[in-house]
Design a protein around this nucleic acid. Sequence first.
DNA 1: GTATCCTTTGTTTTT
DNA 2: CAAAGGATAC
Length: 855
Amino acid sequence: MSDFELLDPSGLPIGGSAAHDAGGDPLVDGLNPAQARAVTTRGPALLIVAGAGSGKTRVLTHRIAHLIREREAWPSQILAITFTNKAAAEMRERIEGLLGDASQGMWISTFHSACVRILRREAERFGYVSGFTIYDSADSRALLKRIIKELDADTYGFTPANSGAKISKLKNELVDAATHAATMNENDPRERLFVEIFRMYEQELKRANAFDFDDLIGQTVHLFRAHPDVAAVYQRRFRHILVDEYQDTNHAQYSLIRELTRPVEPEEVERLVPPARAKELDASGRIPPASLTVVGDSDQSIYAFRGADIRNIVEFERDFAGAEVVKLEQNYRSTQNILSAANAVIGNNFDRQEKHLWTSEGDGERIVGFTGYSQHDEARFVAEEIEDLHRAGLAYSDIAVFYRTNSQTRALEELFIRSAIPYRVLGGTKFYERAEVKDAMAYLTSIANPYDPIAWSRLLGAPKRGVGAMAEAHLANFQEAQGVSFHEAMLRAEEVTAIGPKIRATVRALGEMLVRASRMAVGGGATDVAGEDAKPAPVADVMKLVLDETDMIEKLRAKRDPQDDARAENLEELLAVAREFDVKQPGAGLLAFLTEVSLVAAADDLDDSSGTVSLMTMHTAKGLEFKAVFITGVEEGLLPHQMSVDEIGGISEERRLMYVGITRARERLYLTLASTRATFGDVSVAMPSRFLQEIPEGLIDWRQSPGEVTGRGGTASRALNAPRSSGGGSWSRTRTDSAVTFSGGGSGSGAVSEPASGNMQSALDKWRERKRLAKEAQASGGGFPNLVGGSVRDNGDLELATGDRIRHDEYGEGRVTGVSGVGTKRIAHVVFDTVGERKLLVKLAPIEKVEAGEE
DNA sequence: GTATCCTTTGTTTTT
DNA sequence: CAAAGGATAC
């Protein structure tokens, strides 16, 4: 927030260049003609269509550096929006590399961070306080849960999840409760109830002085529209706006860009402070609109579920008059085989603009395919291949494993631990989502925002101190009636006579502690206590006070559940994270810490130097690249995900996701799947993904094809290359969509970026490393229940009937008590003599019949 | 007021 | 199969 002051008051562009001629410019040399044009073109609007791996980041950074170096803009006039904090950090780093200190003062951040920054400055304009809380999805859900309970809306089928999703969708369209109420069907009681939920949700957020994720964007737009004078400040300041991953912007983000690129009309110009200089104005007395550069690739749009509207990029030229378009089509990342596969897959999407991605690299290795009998078998293959790659000299950090859903990590992690492969899971169960971490953070949140009911309610019950739901309700009523903060209400707990004296004292003591902590932390917070003299204490000190006073860590250690030890360590790690933050951003304050924590993205903590294999979803993988990439679970129902099959445009989006995954690979690509997959409870047969069929056969080197695994007859290796080795039909029969179109050529498109060093990484790294080691110890010590056998088996047509006696490799002997399912899904229910009842997949379990049953 | 057990429930992707 | 909610026991 501090570099806002670096705004050059005059905002003057010091005229065009002439300083450097086209030749011998280090910012342009070494670029291909299209890239060079993307760097040097000027005008009101520019669309850079950047195929996958086409050097997008390079072009963006060079374009910015070029603007600065040619003295067409001051750093403070640049606003660059990226998708993740990590991408922002990387861009900043690269620009610094090009410009040195001259890059100081640019805004390079995500949509969300930029908006928080603006909102913190301007919050007072519309009834918020600068110290507002940012609600993550869990907080929103907690709030909605109360509302739904209060309205008894659950009886109508409303859940925090579904109403939250609906509200989010509306907010992304910039529709608020009042607007929605005006357009809804009055006669539908369900809709009326929903509007009531929405209305209360808005109201409660405001009362809590909190914004949810969607508000950050939406309220900023609202702010600009309601206060043209505020908008004018930013419209004037940012002369060059650059947006990365433009294909994934939603309507709210689009509107934000629109607002920022409006001219400042003469009547607003007059009100500017400091006054505008003549050279800032055009002939009609306005400040001309900022120049807009967007970069994107419609083939990589994978966030429609979050409101991303592909039309933003498709209709860019119509939207922004005078827009120029530059296409980057040469790929510098992948081998031709990988590109061909990507092109073939994406070519099956119909409503797209053809692109002509090419590379001057050779074909490279063929894509390796593998079909496992189970996800364990698949994971085993992945682990073994990684070992081979590593032995061949590839660093672990050059390898990534992708999957569609986070739950797929389990099998992979297990195998990696057994194989002693160092790995790291990006996203997934995040550090900050752990209960004990959220507990501690609730204290800090409440300290920064004493009006936040969610944080307050959370801290009241953690650790347990005898204050339960009853006491909480009485206090909340008191707080509301008195119109004071929760802290103030706690200090006056003695007045709440409905609560027992003992608990009143506990509450008051806790309140005093919070007030004391607030005093320490002042500087960035909205506290309603006096004491603003001292400079804000380091975040770690505030946290230390909370942890000490509440005795959270000690209380956890005192329990004997070993899990609680890990929890205690997590809290210590959190403290370390805070210390790091204090070192990196001295004096930034509690609010900045909370903001940073709220806005961390999954990909933000990728760290190249970690020397670990990276596991992540394909969504998280966007914008990254690795020498070797494994895409796992390439199955119907998983890679086009089941949930997306009935959605309109769902399959197309899944195909783009597949395309994004494929194009992350530089040298080696592996596509793996399993023929059976355990989903909740039982095992089901999985079919190969339709996307596999879209890849020309010759590109894939099947180590084990789907045909071999699906067909009867077991492991005999037949023609390794032919997907139809087991009779063609068996695997090309995908259930719903049998219209398979083969398409050779095509195109691609893309994203770019690399690793970087992170914000709060190293403490988190340590945390993860420790987690890993703990698991490892567990693995070697106790051993895992799901041992992965050396070879896969196939019992073919083994017939089992109730009463049969069988022997299992691991469980010993037992008696069959029932058989269910048909074909490959046949499941035997067996009561073993030693381990009790188990359900087994007849086809694959390591069993043999000992004697037939009586009946 | 809290801890524990059992039932129910749901199962995509995320700033 | 997991997490989360509810009902029951302490």
